[in-house]
Write a protein that binds this DNA or RNA. Structure first.
Length: 589
RNA sequence: GGGGCCGUAGUUAAGUCGGUUAUAACGCUGGCCUGUCAAGCCAGAGGGCGCGGGUUCGAGUCCCGUCGGCCCCGCCA
């Protein structure tokens, strides 16, 4: 191989090299064999260039080209030449040139492929995942992973420039009771004891602040043993950061700078500050805490107007501390019976008992509930919603959490259905002032909305004892186009407050001691005020690259059952291995 | 745990009311071919329909179960 040296990438051969002798190595993308002339598209990670084999120039080399097949790995030497008049390929970056090959060796052949390596593919995803190494040869995936690398570099550069230190934290950590289900790792040296893979490096980064590192970051794998979604893998990557001596605004402004740098890599220029919504505003206007603000279709509260309505569902909801809310779908009066049935099904799946609708027509309100409403109520509703002839009004009357969720989901569905969402927009919004606690009806206790280390807002501290649900947290999420791409908070830096929050969460003193004792102890020794954030790198990449699923931005993703169909993980292990770690496998129920 | 959609040559799909030998395109193999770039033309090989039962004279087609993939609910501090 000594004299076989690659002098440039195939995708980077240009007219400036005309006449030069170059060396290329790569894969045979395609062979066009004219019997006489043979054309080979040679591919490497930077692109394609056309090789020409002319039997009149060199019959021996031409003969070798005859046997080339798709995905053979070859090395060639040849002379760059401009293509003859009329044979330039404008669709190819290197389309003005070609390489007249003078020498070739086949470095490796290839078995026939299970699918073709081309940009657009309709091959089943499972097949692509089984042969992921072939799938990853496709240019779109190469581009996405290259961009991911650039984003990681931009992150490291920006944070380093701003005084952050990249510090690694353990992967074998202590299981914590709150939050997602842990991935457990048995300890051979401590029979019966288990490590957990980190759901995030949360406690370690806080402790690094206590240690005085002041500004920390890490691009780090996190693990949550929960069911998968298009935007959720059980192992995923966070850009994790933490800062000392800061408040919310410090974190937000530094991190907006990071987001600007990240998106610059995809050629997008962002102009912070980003929009802000409080949690209450987000839920009130959009029904969800991760609003897609690229389109309106906002929720309107009609509780005051309709609480005395003759429609029992409305009146009942209002009398039980519920709300009556609605959205107005412009032009929605054309929705068919089936459309409305679909929407009703969605509403029911999110907890509604039904879906009241009104079509505003020339003849007035066409609706199953029109007869229950007075003219004043109808007029007031239309006015509040800005509803005119041709519109469709959808109501939800229930406790606030249900009414908001139902309308929020309907809003998103209809936004997609009516193509109301401008595809090329990037709408960032910080959602702030989350509640600290939520009440879990099933478990009959308060649970942390963010996590148990999130500081309550100072002015709400008094409610900690009297009305925990009123306590707001110094927490913030960054939402992009309806997708939560980051979240963080200012942390509790006093052990007494931390102990009190654990108490509110129903975590007994002994349990808190057992699970987080090291943190409570650490908080006693001069903990600086601190806070931070973590961004979901996979989600950011998916949105940036217009991918339907984060799987397209992960080199080796898992299937929905959390398996890897290429390597066949997870898999059974030898009894000997189990014996060593004192594990006995129970029979499946 | 639940709901929905989907499994037919290597790949993507078609397959009517259950009925001769399961179609096509691309890919693959061979041949022809000197300016193609999804090269072209000709010929050929290749599957028994995810798997297991059942109904039937007869099952990709109907029924039951099961495995797998995707989307969603729950779950994801």
């Amino acid at each position: 191989m000594a004299e076989w040296r690659r002098t440039c990438y195939a995708g980077e051969v240009s007219t400036s090299q005309t006449g030069e002798k170059i060396g290329l190595m790569g894969w045979v993308q395609r062979r066009r064999d004219h019997g006489g002339l043979i054309f080979i598209d040679l591919r490497d990670r930077e692109g394609l260039v056309q090789l020409v084999f002319n039997p009149e120039t060199d019959s021996a080399v031409h003969e070798k080209a005859h046997n080339l097949r798709s995905e053979f790995v070859i090395a060639v030497k040849g002379v760059v030449q401009k293509r003859p008049e009329g044979t330039v390929n404008p669709d190819l970056k290197t389309g003005e040139v070609e390489v007249a090959v003078t020498e070739i060796i086949v470095l490796n052949d290839s078995a026939p492929l299970p699918f073709m390596i081309e940009d657009d593919t309709d091959v089943a995803e499972m097949t692509r995942l089984k042969y992921r190494y072939l799938d990853l040869r496709r240019a779109p995936l190469q581009r996405k992973l290259m961009l991911r690398h650039k984003v990681a570099m931009a992150t490291r550069n920006y944070l380093t420039r701003n005084g952050f230190l990249e510090i690694e934290t353990p992967v074998l950590t202590k299981s914590t009771p709150e939050g997602a289900r842990d991935y457990l790792v048995p300890s051979r040296l401590n029979p019966g004891a288990f490590y957990a893979l980190p759901q995030s490096p949360q406690l370690f980064k806080q402790i690094l602040m206590i240690s005085g590192f002041d500004r920390y970051f890490q691009i780090v794998k996190c693990f949550r043993d929960e069911d998968l979604r298009a935007d959720r893998q059980p192992e995923f990557t966070q850009i994790d950061a933490e800062m000392s001596f800061v408040d919310r605004e410090d974190v937000i402004s530094v991190m907006e700078g990071l987001v600007v740098e990240i998106f610059k890599e995809s050629g997008v220029v962002l102009a912070p500050p980003f929009a802000r919504l409080t949690y209450a505003e987000a839920v009130g206007r959009f029904g969800v805490d991760n609003p897609d603000t690229r389109f309106a279709l906002e929720l309107v509260d009609l509780t005051a107007l309709l609480s005395g309505s003759g429609f029992k569902v409305f009146a009942d909801a209002a009398s039980k501390k519920g709300v009556i809310k609605a959205i107005c779908v412009k032009g929605g009066a054309t929705f068919s019976r089936k459309d409305l049935d679909d929407l009703t099904e969605i509403a029911v799946s999110f907890g509604a008992k039904g879906l009241a609708w009104v079509k505003v027509t020339e003849e007035g309100w066409q609706s199953p509930i029109a007869k229950f409403l007075s003219d004043a109520e109808k007029e007031g509703t239309a006015k509040a919603l800005g509803a005119v002839t041709g519109d469709l009004i959808l109501f939800a009357a229930d406790k606030p959490s249900v009414a908001n969720t139902v309308l929020g989901r309907l809003r998103t569905n209809i936004g997609g259905r009516l193509d109301l969402i401008p595809k090329d927009r990037l709408n960032f919004v910080w959602v702030t002032d989350f509640p600290s606690f939520d009440y879990d009806d099933a478990e009959k206790r308060y649970v942390a909305v963010h996590h148990p280390f999130t500081a309550p807002m100072d002015e709400d501290l008094a409610y900690l004892d009297t009305d925990p649900l009123k306590v707001r947290a110094k927490a913030y999420d960054l939402v992009l186009n309806g997708s939560e791409i980051g979240g963080g908070s200012i942390r509790i830096h006093r052990s007494d407050v931390q102990a009190k929050v654990f108490e509110k969460l129903g975590i007994a003193k002994e349990e808190a001691e057992e699970r987080f004792g090291f943190l409570l102890e650490a908080l006693k020794y001069g903990t600086p005020p601190h806070g931070g954030i973590a961004f979901g790198l996979d989600r950011i990449m998916a949105i940036m690259t217009g991918s339907e699923s984060i799987r397209d931005c992960i080199a080796f993703p898992k299937t929905q059952k959390a398996t890897d169909v290429m390597s066949d993980a997870p898999s059974p292990v030898d009894q000997k291995q189990l014996d060593e770690i004192f594990i006995r496998v129970a029979k499946k129920a």
